[in-house]
Each structure stands twice: as C-alpha cells, then as structure tokens.
C-alpha cells in the first residue's frame, strides 16, 4: 500500500481574530468493507474513522467519519485564529494508527 501522506493547506501568517480556511487531504484508500475481491471474498473495512484539528490544545473541529467518505478524504473548515500557535491535525485509522501533521500559524 502506498504510504499514507497527509497534506494540509493553512496560511502561515494571519492576524489575531482572523478567520482562515483550512483544507486537509490525506491519501488513504478508505476501504469501505462493501467491496469484494475477484474470488468473492469481502475486502475488510479499513478507513480513517476520526479526524480532529486542535489549536494549542483547544478543539477546532472533530469529524466522525463513516465508510461513505471518499478515498483520500478531504475536509475543509474555517477557524478563528486567537494568536500564534500550532494547529495540530490527527487522522485515526481503523487499525489504531494515528497520522498527524502540525502547522504553525504566526500572528503578526
């Protein structure tokens, strides 16, 4: 399987109190558990089941994800920047692996 690679788009600079749009994408097959291989065996479910973004320990958004979300799940949301800090992203896989990515936001 191709390596799971998160990609996020966050402005590196913002002003305090500004609303920014955050776009995230992670390469993941999101195997739904509905498909069958060519021998008729069900391919076991393997999806990202939770996505969360936190800024300096404070939660911005949390999404409980079901198999109906497309492969390479994409999430977009708006957040308010209270000050300089790190925006931390976490994707939790069905097998328990947590993929993380951090982005610094500087307030000028």
């Amino acid at each position: 399987m191709a390596a799971v690679k998160p990609r996020v788009k966050v402005p590196s600079k913002a002003s305090a109190g500004e609303t920014i749009t955050v776009k995230t994408l992670i390469s993941h097959p999101m195997e739904s558990g509905q498909r069958k291989d060519k021998d008729g065996n069900v391919i076991p479910r393997k999806i990202i089941n939770t996505f969360a973004a936190t800024f300096e320990g404070e939660e911005v958004i949390r999404i409980k994800v079901e198999p109906a979300v497309s492969a390479n799940p994409y999430f977009e949301f708006d957040m308010k920047v209270p000050g300089t800090g790190t925006l931390a992203f976490a994707w939790t896989d069905d097998d328990g692996t947590v993929y993380t990515e951090d982005k610094k936001i500087e307030v000028a």
Binding site: T19, I20, S32, Q34, T54, F55, E58, E59, V60, I61, R62, I63, K64, V65, E66, P67, A68, V69, S70, P73, Y74, F75, E76, F77, D78, M79, K80, P82
Partner: peptide, 24 residues
C-alpha cells in the same frame, strides 16, 4: 448501504459551523 457519512462536531475555535468534504 450504510447511511452514515460523517458527524461533525465544532469546537470553540471553529469560525463558523461549516465544513466541506467528499462522499461516496
């Protein structure tokens, strides 16, 4: 086949209660 798609919870820092994704 399974109705669930996503359940989005907004934290105190979410600027507005809105989100976008892609679904099957």
């Amino acid at each position: 086949p399974n109705a669930g798609v996503a359940e989005i919870t907004f934290g105190p820092l979410a600027a507005r209660s809105a989100a976008a994704t892609r679904v099957r």
